[in-house]
Each structure stands twice: as structure tokens, then as C-alpha cells.
Amino acid sequence: MKESPKTGISGGEQSDEHRTVLADRRRRFVMDDLLGRVWPVAVYDLTDRLLSWEAERGNDTEPFDVVRAKLVDVHLPKLVEAGLVDPVDGQRYELTEAGLTLEANARGIDLAAVEEDPEWVLSD
């Protein structure tokens, strides 16, 4: 995970750009999905999980290829431009430090506590 120079995030603050970018449900899904992954995620896998998520909520879904193209051409570039995700090899993406911080703050997760004791996630 790399620090992005365009973050604009300190503490729990969210820039206007981030609020605008994250207003879209599909971009929110991508951020949420990437937060739960250890390794960079392939666009194919993001698309598959996004379609499943939309179907579970009763949303009309578009064909796989259309959704994948929208992720590649619209949603992921906006998240990259906002400094929230980074492309790894053009087909896989991961959260930046800014994206991780933003998502953790939105969920009330203390990243310092996680760094001190990474096993806390596994404990009951």
C-alpha cells in the first residue's frame, strides 16, 4: 500500500473531492471490497462481487462486460485520481494509505491499535 500525494486526509477528515467520488454506490462498493482484501484485487473479481452485491439488493444489473467496462473506464480512474486506490498492474487494484485511513475512520477502526496488535481482528 502506497501513500498517495493527493490524499488531503488528516485524521477523519474527508475532502469535498472524496465526498463527490464516494457518492456513487459502485465506487463505495469498490472501497469496501478492497478494505477487506490483503492482496490487490483483479477487476474481474471486483466485477463479479459487485454484480452479486447488486443482485442481493434487488438492483437491476447490467451484463458483466458492461459493468467491467464501467469499472475500468469510469469508477476506478476516479478513485485513482482521488488518491484512494492504486493500480498494481492495470488489472489489479489496492487501497492507498489515504483510502485505508478514510475507510477505517468511517468504520471507527483505530489503525494504531491494529498496527500494535494485528491479531485483534482474529480474536473474539
Rank of each mutant, 00 (worst) to 15 (best):
M1W: 03
K2Q: 15
K2P: 11
P5W: 08
T7P: 08
T7R: 02
T7A: 13
G8M: 02
G8D: 06
S10N: 10
G11A: 09
G12H: 13
G12W: 05
G12V: 09
G12D: 11
E13I: 10
Q14R: 04
Q14N: 05
Q14V: 14
Q14T: 06
S15L: 04
S15V: 09
D16F: 11
D16E: 13
E17M: 13
E17A: 10
T20R: 15
T20Q: 15
L22P: 13
L22Y: 08
L22M: 12
A23K: 12
R26S: 14
R26Q: 13
R26L: 06
R26G: 05
R27D: 06
R28I: 07
F29P: 03
F29K: 04
F29D: 09
M31Y: 09
D32A: 09
D32E: 08
D32Q: 08
D33A: 12
L35T: 01
G36R: 04
G36T: 00
G36V: 01
R37T: 00
R37A: 00
V38H: 03
V38S: 04
W39C: 00
V41A: 09
V43D: 09
V43E: 12
Y44V: 04
L46P: 10
D48K: 01
L50T: 07
L50Q: 05
L51M: 03
L51Y: 01
S52P: 01
W53Y: 10
W53N: 06
W53D: 15
W53I: 00
A55T: 04
R57M: 10
N59H: 08
N59K: 05
D60Y: 02
D60L: 00
D60R: 05
T61D: 00
E62C: 00
P63T: 01
V66E: 04
V67C: 00
K70S: 06
K70H: 04
K70I: 02
K70M: 02
K70A: 06
L71H: 05
V72W: 10
V72P: 00
V72D: 06
V72A: 08
V72G: 07
V74Y: 04
H75W: 14
L76Y: 11
L76S: 12
P77V: 07
K78V: 04
K78M: 13
L79P: 08
V80D: 12
V80F: 05
A82Q: 04
G83F: 03
L84T: 03
L84G: 05
V85I: 13
V85D: 14
D86R: 15
P87F: 03
P87S: 10
V88W: 03
V88G: 09
T96W: 00
T96E: 01
E97D: 08
E97P: 04
A98S: 14
G99W: 02
G99D: 10
T101I: 12
L102P: 06
L102M: 07
E103T: 13
E103K: 13
A104F: 03
N105H: 06
N105W: 02
N105V: 09
R107G: 07
G108I: 07
G108A: 04
I109Y: 08
D110T: 06
L111R: 12
A112D: 13
A112Y: 02
A113T: 10
A113D: 12
A113C: 07
A113E: 14
A113F: 06
A113W: 05
V114C: 01
E115L: 14
D117S: 07
E119G: 04
V121Q: 09
L122F: 13
L122I: 01
L122T: 11
L122A: 11
S123H: 09
D124H: 07
